[in-house]
């Protein structure tokens, strides 16, 4: 039995009387300590999937099991790093993490809690910004706060919903490394959702593409057999990496193109005639008015 398991999960939204089936028959098993990446297009239902796992949404049918027990609402055992950081702007970095720690670890003494918070702030290299508010931080720093908050809750599973998609390429690279470093320290089970195949390959043990919705479901999995630690500069020359990357991309492009074909939408072009240079008013045309195009 897998640590985190999704069995035949389906989810649909109803908007203005029209039901849209977003996810159909999602089956996924993640072992303890494993790092799985789910790659998909925007709008393919990735965030819906992660919200089903963290409990913010409930599946229409099927089950989400954590250690064999069905998930019942959101809880701190599944730490979430949200796409748009979701740190509270009226609290400082320290207070943001404290809010989570106070809630999850109420048994610790005040001193222990303080040490715990500071340890995680240090882990994401934000010690110099401990007492700053989010407005004073850059995007990358904000996402680091979010990472620190999720990790400080000592969750059993770490869920990441496109955590780095809003960042520039350089910050992204550093944060990828940091997240991997932290993950490898205590080998928490992790699920990363991303739209970047490279990111998935660099970070994960397994990559599973999500076929684009509606009716999104998981595609065949690709395991990443590249030894850790993976270095971004070196990995670019690695032939396994290149091959894997091409495979995943080809698969995604293929399912993406079938989506376009199966759309069944015909675009009606407006019936327009080009406007020619010449007279506007109707009437008998004089010879001298004859239009010369070139």
């Amino acid at each position: 039995m897998a640590f985190l398991e999704l069995k035949n999960v389906c989810k649909s939204y109803i908007n203005k009387g029209i039901t849209t089936q977003v996810l159909t028959d999602i089956n996924l098993g993640i072992e303890e300590g494993e790092f799985v990446a789910i790659v998909g297009f925007t709008g393919s239902g990735k965030t819906t999937l992660i919200n089903l796992i963290n409990g913010l949404l409930e599946p229409d049918s099927g089950e989400v099991l954590l250690k064999g027990k069905p998930v019942d609402g959101p809880g701190p055992d599944r730490g979430v790093i949200f796409q748009n950081y979701s740190i509270l702007p009226w609290l400082t970095v320290y207070q943001n993490i404290k809010l989570a720690v106070d809630e999850v670890l109420p048994d610790l003494s005040k001193k222990e809690r303080d040490a715990h918070i500071r340890r995680y702030i240090e882990m994401v290299n934000l010690t110099h910004a401990t007492d700053k508010r989010p407005a004073e931080l850059s995007g990358g720093m904000r996402q680091r706060v979010s990472v620190a908050r999720a990790l400080a809750m000592s969750p059993q599973v770490l869920l990441m919903d496109e955590p780095l998609s809003a960042l520039d390429a350089l910050t992204r690279g550093t944060l990828q490394k940091e997240i991997i470093n932290i993950w490898s320290k205590d080998q928490k089970t992790a699920l990363l959702i991303t739209n970047d195949v490279d990111e998935g390959i660099i970070m994960a043990d397994r990559i599973i593409p999500l076929k684009p919705g509606p009716n999104a479901t998981l595609g065949p999995e690709f395991s990443v057999n590249i030894p850790r630690p993976r270095n971004i500069t070196e990995i670019n020359k690695n032939s396994t990496y290149k091959k894997l990357r091409n495979e995943v991309l080809e698969y995604l492009i293929e399912v993406g193109s079938t989506r376009v074909q199966n759309d069944g939408v015909e675009y009606l072009l407006p019936d327009l005639k080009p406007v020619m240079p010449g007279r506007i008013w109707p009437g008998k045309r004089k010879k001298s008015e004859k239009v010369k195009y070139f």
């Binding site: 913010l56 959101p74 809880g75 949200f82 009226w90 809630e103 999850v104």
Partner: peptide, 27 residues
């Protein structure tokens, strides 16, 4: 909604939810 989601994930009780998330956000 992001703030509400944070409160839900942290399982804040109603009092903490009001005083630590909702009130400051609507301040």
């Amino acid at each position: 909604k992001d703030f509400i989601n944070v409160a839900k994930v942290l399982r804040l009780n109603i009092g903490q939810n009001i005083f630590k998330v909702i009130l400051p956000a609507s301040f």
